[in-house]
Amino acid sequence: MQGVVKVNSALNMRSGPGSNYGVIGTLRNNDKVEIIKEVDGAYEIRFNGKVGYASKSYITIVN
């Protein structure tokens, strides 16, 4: 499943599905991501070869 990031500035990509996990990357508006699955209000995603988590509130599914 594919998604597009929709933010005003940037969205943190984290090592786990919550803000208490470390930041492993930054997503920008209109970045395209692969959605692997939904976990606790976040999506597990793949972006630029990395797998991490981002809030589903800022990712629009575009299948």
Score class of each variant (00 low, 15 high):
Met1Leu: 13
Met1Val: 12
Met1Ala: 10
Met1Gln: 11
Gln2Val: 14
Gln2Glu: 11
Gln2Gly: 06
Gln2Ser: 10
Gln2Ala: 10
Gln2Arg: 11
Gln2Met: 14
Gln2Ile: 15
Gly3Lys: 01
Gly3Asn: 01
Gly3His: 02
Gly3Tyr: 03
Gly3Cys: 09
Val4Ala: 04
Val4Glu: 05
Val4Arg: 07
Val4Asn: 03
Val4Ile: 13
Val4Leu: 10
Val5Ile: 07
Val5Met: 02
Val5Trp: 01
Val5Lys: 01
Lys6Glu: 06
Lys6Ile: 10
Val7Cys: 15
Asn8Lys: 15
Asn8Tyr: 11
Asn8Ile: 11
Asn8Asp: 14
Asn8Ala: 13
Asn8Val: 13
Ser9Phe: 14
Ser9Lys: 13
Ser9Ala: 10
Ser9Cys: 15
Ala10Lys: 14
Ala10Asn: 10
Ala10Phe: 15
Ala10Gly: 11
Leu11Val: 15
Leu11Cys: 15
Leu11Ile: 15
Leu11Phe: 07
Asn12Thr: 13
Asn12Ala: 15
Asn12His: 15
Asn12Glu: 15
Met13Cys: 08
Met13Glu: 02
Met13Phe: 12
Met13Ile: 15
Met13Gln: 02
Met13Asn: 02
Met13His: 02
Arg14Glu: 05
Arg14Asp: 04
Arg14Leu: 14
Arg14Met: 14
Arg14Gln: 09
Arg14Asn: 10
Ser15His: 05
Ser15Ile: 07
Ser15Gly: 08
Ser15Asp: 13
Ser15Glu: 12
Ser15Cys: 12
Gly16Glu: 06
Gly16Val: 03
Gly16Trp: 03
Pro17Phe: 05
Pro17His: 05
Pro17Ala: 06
Gly18Arg: 05
Gly18Trp: 04
Gly18Asp: 10
Gly18Thr: 11
Gly18Ala: 07
Gly18Cys: 09
Ser19Tyr: 12
Ser19Arg: 13
Ser19Met: 13
Ser19Thr: 12
Asn20Ile: 09
Asn20Ser: 12
Asn20Trp: 12
Asn20Gly: 11
Tyr21Trp: 09
Tyr21Ala: 15
Tyr21Gly: 09
Tyr21Asp: 14
Tyr21Cys: 15
Tyr21Leu: 04
Tyr21His: 10
Gly22Pro: 15
Gly22Phe: 12
Gly22Ala: 15
Gly22Asp: 15
Val23His: 04
Val23Lys: 07
Val23Glu: 03
Val23Gln: 04
Ile24Arg: 02
Ile24Ser: 04
Ile24Glu: 03
Ile24Cys: 06
Gly25Trp: 09
Gly25Tyr: 10
Gly25Cys: 15
Gly25Ile: 09
Gly25Val: 09
Thr26Gln: 13
Thr26Ala: 06
Thr26Asp: 03
Thr26Phe: 10
Thr26Leu: 12
Thr26Lys: 12
Thr26Cys: 13
Leu27Gln: 00
Leu27Thr: 01
Leu27Gly: 01
Arg28Cys: 13
Arg28Phe: 12
Arg28His: 13
Arg28Ile: 09
Arg28Leu: 11
Asn29Ser: 07
Asn29Lys: 07
Asn29Glu: 06
Asn29Arg: 08
Asn30Leu: 10
Asn30Arg: 07
Asn30Thr: 04
Asn30Pro: 02
Asp31Val: 04
Asp31Gly: 02
Asp31Phe: 04
Asp31Glu: 06
Asp31Lys: 02
Asp31Asn: 04
Asp31Met: 05
Lys32Ile: 14
Lys32Arg: 13
Lys32Gly: 05
Lys32Glu: 09
Val33Asn: 00
Val33Asp: 00
Val33Lys: 00
Val33Trp: 01
Glu34Lys: 06
Glu34Val: 10
Glu34Met: 11
Glu34Ala: 08
Glu34Gln: 10
Glu34Ser: 09
Ile35Trp: 01
Ile36His: 03
Ile36Lys: 03
Ile36Gln: 03
Ile36Gly: 02
Ile36Asp: 01
Ile36Val: 09
Ile36Arg: 04
Ile36Ser: 03
Lys37Ala: 13
Lys37Cys: 12
Lys37Val: 04
Lys37Asp: 10
Lys37Ile: 05
Lys37Pro: 00
Lys37Tyr: 05
Lys37Asn: 12
Glu38Tyr: 04
Glu38Arg: 03
Glu38Phe: 04
Glu38Gln: 06
Glu38Ser: 07
Val39Glu: 06
Val39Arg: 05
Val39Trp: 09
Val39Tyr: 09
Val39Asp: 04
Val39His: 09
Asp40Val: 07
Asp40Asn: 13
Asp40Gln: 10
Asp40Pro: 08
Asp40Leu: 11
Gly41Leu: 07
Gly41Glu: 10
Gly41Trp: 11
Gly41Lys: 06
Ala42Arg: 09
Ala42Gly: 05
Ala42Lys: 09
Ala42Leu: 15
Ala42Ser: 14
Ala42Cys: 15
Ala42His: 15
Ala42Phe: 15
Tyr43Met: 03
Tyr43Val: 02
Tyr43Leu: 04
Tyr43Ile: 02
Tyr43Cys: 03
Glu44Pro: 00
Glu44Lys: 13
Glu44Thr: 02
Glu44Ser: 03
Ile45Arg: 00
Ile45Ser: 00
Arg46Ser: 10
Arg46Val: 12
Arg46Trp: 10
Arg46Lys: 11
Phe47Ala: 07
Asn48Cys: 11
Asn48Ser: 07
Asn48Val: 04
Asn48Gln: 12
Asn48Pro: 01
Asn48His: 10
Gly49Lys: 05
Gly49Thr: 05
Gly49Arg: 04
Gly49Trp: 03
Gly49Tyr: 04
Lys50Phe: 08
Lys50Arg: 10
Lys50Leu: 14
Lys50Gln: 12
Lys50Ile: 14
Val51Thr: 11
Val51Cys: 08
Val51Gly: 03
Val51Ser: 07
Val51Ile: 13
Val51Gln: 09
Val51Asn: 06
Gly52His: 02
Gly52Tyr: 03
Gly52Cys: 03
Tyr53Asn: 01
Tyr53Val: 02
Ala54Lys: 01
Ala54Gln: 01
Ala54His: 02
Ala54Ile: 09
Ala54Ser: 04
Ala54Asp: 01
Ser55Met: 11
Ser55Phe: 08
Ser55Arg: 08
Lys56Val: 10
Lys56Pro: 05
Lys56Trp: 03
Lys56Asn: 05
Lys56Cys: 08
Lys56Met: 10
Ser57Pro: 08
Ser57Tyr: 14
Ser57Phe: 14
Ser57Val: 14
Ser57Ala: 14
Ser57Cys: 15
Ser57Gln: 15
Tyr58Ile: 04
Ile59Asn: 00
Ile59Tyr: 01
Ile59Gln: 00
Ile59Asp: 01
Ile59Gly: 00
Thr60Ala: 11
Thr60Leu: 13
Thr60Met: 14
Thr60Gln: 14
Thr60His: 14
Thr60Asp: 10
Ile61Arg: 06
Ile61Tyr: 05
Ile61Thr: 06
Ile61His: 04
Val62Trp: 08
Val62Leu: 12
Val62Cys: 13
Val62Ile: 13
Asn63Phe: 11
Asn63Tyr: 11
Asn63Ser: 13
Asn63Val: 12
Asn63Ala: 12
Asn63Leu: 11
Asn63Glu: 12
Asn63Gly: 13
